[in-house]
């Protein structure tokens, strides 16, 4: 059974990347951009779901960690000449001025720095619960933004950075997403994943069963920060431009929306919803602009798109609290044992 599952998974991954290859060659540039965004949002949703959905610690710091990742990777990959011209208010500090590395190490360092700061932040804030934790992490995320805005000679302050190398193609975005999906699936089904879920279900009982609350939460928070940092870096190299305003808490809310729609505590849900919500967000851009029906023009209302999404978030939480998947997961066992498959076997 286990071997069979691994083989099935490998086949699925190969099929998936073949599909990506096809889509990548038939899509126009706007469509592939959305495709790339989907992969990034899957990573971000998994990051938030790990801490909120699986560990039950309501953190709202994702945008801040994304900012750290995006800035780290941007500074590490921009050519020195470009940095020299970008930092015109105050030159970049000398120790960063001449660094230029390729994408993979930059991405990893982006994740690591984000994880390190997550680790440091976690020590005080993880003593808090629920709402307090939410406010404290939201606060930290905003502090990170304030710091970035003020560190003129490192981040270029409120001017932001323009012309980041356009590295995030479909392969990078979805390659990272698939690695994150596999990592999460393996982690969550391991004994450590069960410990996290126990904490989510009942902290006092988990502690009574010998689970070290602080250490496990710290682990989840750090890994989640790592993933958010990598996601932020990918996003930066897709947008080509980053500035502190991009990483406001509303960005975290969008990711929260994805997690809630997919199901809080479901990897499968985050993946499905990451794709659906991202595509919908892009598709709904039309309501922000004018819609030309040929015979008449419906006047667009700027901002309407986000109204629709906030209503969606409310509807889901009020009426479909479990989202698409609840806490359920896709599994081969479930597919193989489903009626459809059994019948076919009987016929054969």
């Amino acid at each position: 059974m286990k071997k069979k599952k691994i083989i099935l998974s490998l086949i699925a991954i190969i099929l998936f990347f073949s599909l990506l290859f096809i889509l990548n060659s038939v899509f126009n540039s706007h469509q592939t951009r959305i495709l790339r965004l989907c992969g990034i949002y899957v990573v971000l949703a998994l990051s938030l779901n790990l801490i909120n959905g699986f560990t039950g610690q309501f953190s709202l710091g994702t945008a801040g960690f994304m900012a750290i990742g995006a800035y780290t990777s941007a500074i590490l990959t921009m050519p020195p000449a470009q940095k020299a011209s970008a930092y015109y208010l105050e030159p970049i500090v000398p120790w960063l001025a001449d660094i230029e590395m390729s994408f993979l190490p930059a991405l990893i360092i982006a994740g690591l720095i984000s994880a390190l700061i997550g680790f440091i932040v976690a020590a005080p804030v993880l003593r808090l619960r629920d709402d307090y934790l939410a406010i404290a992490t939201l606060g930290f995320s905003e502090i990170i933004r304030v710091v970035i805005t003020n560190l003129q000679n490192i981040t270029n302050g409120s001017l932001g950075l323009k012309g980041l190398p356009n590295y995030t193609n479909v392969w990078w975005s979805w390659g990272v997403a698939v690695v994150c999906i596999i990592f999460m699936a393996l982690l969550i089904n391991s004994s450590y994943g069960r410990a996290l879920k126990a904490i989510r279900e009942d902290e006092i009982a988990a502690e009574a069963m010998g689970i070290n609350l602080f250490r496990n939460k710290l682990f989840a928070f750090t890994v989640s920060s790592f993933m958010a940092g990598v996601g932020g870096a990918l996003l930066g190299h897709l947008m080509g431009t980053i500035d502190p305003l991009m990483f406001r808490f509303t960005l975290t809310y969008n990711i929260l929306l994805i997690v809630v729609v997919g199901g809080i505590g479901s990897i499968t849900g985050s993946v499905i919803s990451g794709v659906i919500v991202t595509v919908a967000m892009e598709a709904l851009r039309i309501v922000d602009g004018n819609i030309d029906l040929g015979f008449m023009v419906i006047k667009g209302i700027p901002g309407m798109r986000m109204v629709i999404f906030s209503i969606l978030l409310m509807v889901i939480i009020l009426f479909f609290r479990r989202g698409i998947m609840g806490t359920n997961e896709f599994s081969w066992k479930w597919i193989l044992e489903s009626k459809l498959f059994k019948k076919r076997k009987e016929v054969a």
């Binding site: 069960r194 879920k197 126990a198 279900e201 009942d202 006092i204 009982a205 988990a206 009574a208 806490t327």
Partner: peptide
Amino acid sequence: FQNIRLFKEL
């Protein structure tokens, strides 16, 4: 626990 504290969803 007196008031049963199982990991309900598991």
